[in-house]
């Protein structure tokens, strides 16, 4: 079947979708957006969390056909989503970000699928500036995850970022218990969650300063 929906602000279409495919599979294998992760495919880890019409859901449990006509935000579009939110919150502030990065696009989003091997081969860790990353413009919660050391293997990170960003949208001043509850559907096996707590607190604090 054919499925048409919006991902990170761009219309997307997938053909020859098997009816049993999940939204996660379509994003990863058909639309070239593998940022949402396939850790359990049973709704028990949160690694595949995306926003579906604004609501965080496990994309592994959304049938592809159920996404028809819906709006999806994935980790690949999180930075742009956060920028849009900031713009909407502060309409009179001049926009200094310049040309908006068409970020909904992971590698190869326009037409091709998956991570092309060239992109995979070209993976290099450029330590241009060891303290601030490489200058890519990120959502505050993404930057906070890097700064706080909340990323180790990183496989849980995309889902956690989408969930944490949505929580901060609803609850800008979360208590520790609020953070834990909001992220209790996202498993991490590397960090013991302490640095993730630090990252979300940091993002909330920076968000507070920015307002």
């Amino acid at each position: 079947m054919r499925v048409t929906f919006t991902v990170n602000g761009r219309p997307q279409e997938a053909d020859d979708v098997w009816e049993g495919e999940s939204l996660l599979y379509v994003l990863r294998e058909r639309l070239g957006l593998p940022g949402s992760k396939n850790a359990c495919e049973q709704g028990e880890c949160g690694s595949c969390t995306v926003r579906l019409d604004g609501v965080p859901v496990c994309s592994c449990l959304v049938a592809a056909g159920q996404a028809e006509g819906r709006e999806i935000v994935t980790v690949e579009g999180l930075a742009e989503h956060a920028r849009e939110r900031a713009r909407a919150a502060a309409p009179r502030t001049s926009d200094t970000t310049g040309a908006s990065d068409p970020s909904g696009s992971g590698p190869g989003a326009s037409g091709t699928a998956g991570t092309p091997l060239d992109a995979a081969r070209a993976w290099r860790a450029h330590g241009a500036d060891p303290h601030t990353g490489d200058g890519t413009e990120l959502a505050p919660v993404q930057q906070a995850f890097i700064d706080a050391g909340a990323v180790q293997c990183g496989f849980c990170t995309p889902g956690l970022l989408v969930a944490a960003d949505e929580m901060l949208e609803r609850n800008p001043n979360p208590s520790d218990a609020d953070i834990r509850e909001a992220l209790s559907g996202n498993l991490c096996r590397c960090t013991g969650y302490e640095k993730i707590m630090d990252a979300v607190r940091l993002a909330a604090a920076r968000q507070g300063e920015a307002v």
């Binding site: 495919e41 496990c58 449990l61 049938a63 159920q66």
Partner: peptide, 26 residues
């Protein structure tokens, strides 16, 4: 019938169930 998908999709993802039709109620 499939709505939230939180039971049905697990069964499909793990090959426990192959219904002839999925009836989307969303």
């Amino acid at each position: 019938p499939i709505a939230g998908g939180t039971d049905v999709m697990v069964e499909i993802n793990f090959d426990h169930r192959r219904p002839g039709h999925l009836l989307d109620l969303t």
